[in-house]
Write a protein that binds this DNA or RNA. Sequence first.
DNA 1: ATGTTGATCTTCT
DNA 2: GAAGATCAACATC
Length: 214
Amino acid sequence: MGSGTREELLALDSVRLAPHLLGALVSSFIDGELVVVRLTEVEAYNGSSDPGSHAYRGRTPRNAALFGPPGTAYVYFTYGMHHCANVVCGSDGTASAVLMRAGEVLAGEEAVRARRGNSTAPAHVLLSGPARLAQGLGLGLRQNGTSYLRGTAGEPGPSLGLENLAAIPLAHCRGPRTGVSGEGGGEAYPYRYWLPGEPSVSPYRRAAPRRRGT
DNA sequence: ATGTTGATCTTCT
DNA sequence: GAAGATCAACATC
């Protein structure tokens, strides 16, 4: 039996790891700003066997970081303007990952507000959504492929952290993933996990097909 | 509170 | 050419 160390937990596949990430602390030290966030909502994506995963159709230049070792950050650019960030997990090469969807600011709220361009909104909406969370943490393609596991211990320069994973998951809920349409959506893949009663958890929205542009 | 739409661009078909 | 692991603004109730 594992004793629940961070490395042991990150070696689990995404669906098993996800609940252990609820309540965990993600930190970034980027552009001289330290931000610490407590995760309240995540979604699991299970690699090549999961129609909702970016790795479902194999490895591409964009998703290469998904195939890296556990603890790798997979950050991607989408909708022409947003970034979203994952924690890669499972056996090396399985492309299993957990998307960070929402969190609560514990430190660095000023930096988060500056990055989000929002000095007035209530704190709980600042990091409510995957693109908001990534933006608040300052995550972009520069962090894609870097590791959450290398603490900086004196090293200058950008770095990420991931601490305080739950050895025993906190009480949580789960349900269908947000924003995933087609086969990977709906009740067939109830891989969204969240902490009940957290104001930062975004309401569930079924993936809505967009109307064709002109 | 809930629903609709434009923005904007990379990736894959 | 179309869709996409989204968000913010706006319309309507």
